[in-house]
Design a protein around this nucleic acid. Structure first.
Lengths: 348, 348
DNA sequence: GAGAGTTTCGAAAACTTTTCGATAATTGCT
DNA sequence: AGCAATTATCGAAAAGTTTTCGAAACTCTC
């Protein structure tokens, strides 16, 4: 109904409410010279007819905020690309912004300034990359009815935060199985913080695969700090200096793998002849590395695209089927992992 | 003046500008069916009369469009970061968008669709990363009075395009001098397209440094295709298979350097022991490479920040002192270039 | 150089807001 | 109560703005 002819206009509402066009206009603009009773009635009719002004919004495009933590790396770039591409397809603007690394949960219940900015700038939705938000931040966003989608949230997925991830556990298993199938038995893992959800999943997948073939993982074969290059160098150095060093290492990220690569090179160890390496993420650096990294691919662009589409759905008030979506990981075989025979031959 | 009677209205402006009320309204709302000349004139009159709408809009934030070509790489990421940081400082939104690689100068004089989008979305300014725009695109932007700043434009800097670059020539010289000072004499160059301005500058700087110490550069020591990994592999392979292969190579980009690194590894050549390598850009991958790349640093973040500030100046109608700014390059010494003695010892 | 398509523009129509006068309701005063 | 003054409410008309639509001018193509 109310669609008999064209758009709903002030005249439509005025007719339906039995008042003049001017009065309806006054109600819309909160003028004082309208009696409360009339105002209420007009407002009801407005609602009923779903009146929207001539220009619902001042012709401004929908805008979603994409934020990253601290600095951009090879990982975030892929996600950003996915978000931007999906944003173009959907005809929304993607505003990119950085936010300080870890506001360290301000004791007060106030949201961080940059969160308040997002709200104040009236975005349709926000997308975070591996972000860890304080409860106050989440509460502020919820109050403002501003949907949030996090790609690969750093902390354990909370039920009230929509998130997009990948099958980290399966990826960890795939990496371990690949190395096992190449004949390796002494396999180390160098990954991120023990509190990080994706690190836990990757390591659990790794452990699970190792367990299922009855291979022990000694504690000195596990090194956890962060997913960064320097952590790879440190962990790799420690592990390669062991009397009984591993013949293969599964790195929790490509950046870590590159750090291990450097630690190996510094010791005159060649990859993959003397040490097999499997990374995680399949960022650009995996392809550019020498040797190119065998790695577990996270479909980061797709994850970004899914995050954007989910954010738009939430912004449109639609329900999403699941608060957490995981896309499949794939093992990408390049040149950094080789059969164990090679390394034993070289060692002998 | 113009206050003879009551408020300044569309009719006032229309009369003063000699156009219809409708046209003024269209200018105000950024409609497309107004010629640039008319738009400019009306805008000027609007300004002069200090026209304010009946209800001032809720002050939307300034928005600048940052666009990249095709895919994001380690290079663009640094620039993006600089733009985003400067944008935050200036309180403007940075909208990120991709555009198709090379529309190949559509024969017609029409601007590319994505350019029309930028104009239609009424950005305050646009920033391109290594973009090559067709004349029609530039003309369309100029007509819409939309300032454009290009970071490291792919083609020769045109006088009517504001651009930000770095001292490529000096960087090329610095790279060559570094390798020369390490005792190298057989030095190759693998870089981008001969038509690319920055490639020309880098290679000229390289050649100039070589000339000034009287060292010849045989033609087979020069390889030009693109600034990509695969080009590094191809060029590196060709050059390293020469009977009299170079002892050092200056790569026109870090990505090319990584390709050369891989070509060397495939031939059992070690870097820097058997081959010294100097990259260009100092993107993240230079730090992550194994060995870490000695490279010529372009201050990409600063370049991005300068581009944004310049764009805002232009948007504010200010004159900029120069249409092309070059920031200084710096040689970053890491581990991929070593004294020539080492390699001759290894060779003997 | 005709034809098809595009761009530019203003008159008129459509829509919204404001002004201002009419009317009714309320208050103040005797 | 009766009457005047005040106030509240409302809509017609005016004012202001945006959109539609057709005409004219221009451009590109064959």
């Amino acid at each position: 109904m109310t669609r008999l002819k064209g758009r709903v206009t002030l005249a439509t509402v005025a007719g339906s409410a039995g008042v003049s066009v001017a009065t309806v206009s006054k109600v819309l603009n909160g003028r004082s010279d309208v009696s409360p009773a009339t105002r209420a009635r007009v407002q009801e009719i407005l609602e009923k007819h779903g009146y929207v002004g001539r220009r619902p919004e001042p012709a401004r495009r929908e805008t979603i905020e994409l934020f990253y933590q601290g600095v951009l790396n090879a990982y975030s770039v892929q996600v950003i690309q996915g978000v931007v591409e999906a944003g173009q397809a959907a005809g929304v603007d993607v505003v990119l912004n950085a936010h300080p690394p870890h506001p360290q949960a301000s004791s007060s219940g106030r949201a961080a300034p940059w969160i308040r900015d997002i709200i104040g700038n009236s975005r349709q939705a926000a997308i975070g990359i591996t972000s860890q938000l304080a409860d106050a931040d989440l509460a502020a966003l919820a109050r403002a009815r501003l949907p949030l989608v996090v790609v690969d949230p750093a902390n354990i997925p909370q039920p009230d935060v929509t998130s997009v991830g990948s099958t980290n556990f399966a990826g960890g298993m795939a990496a371990a199985q690949h190395l096992l199938s190449l004949g390796h038995r002494r396999i180390g893992y160098i990954g991120g913080q023990p509190t990080s959800a994706c690190n836990q999943a990757r390591m659990s997948g790794f452990r699970s695969a190792m367990d299922s073939v009855g291979v022990e993982v000694p504690s000195e074969y596990i090194w956890l700090s962060d997913f960064l290059y320097d952590d790879g160098v440190a962990g790799g150095s420690a592990m390669l200096d062991l009397r009984n060093r591993p013949t293969a290492i599964f790195a929790g990220s490509d950046e870590v793998a590159l750090g291990i690569l450097e630690a190996a090179r510094a010791r005159g160890l060649r990859v993959p002849e003397d040490l097999s390496l499997v990374g995680f993420d399949d960022t650009e650096v995996a392809r550019l590395a020498s040797p190119p990294l065998t790695t577990v691919r996270q479909p980061l662009r797709e994850m970004g695209a899914v995050a954007l589409r989910t954010a738009l759905q939430l912004a449109a008030g639609e329900q999403v089927s699941s608060h957490h979506v995981e896309l499949a990981t794939t093992l990408i075989v390049r040149g950094s992992a080789a059969p164990h025979e090679l390394s034993s031959v070289a060692a002998s």
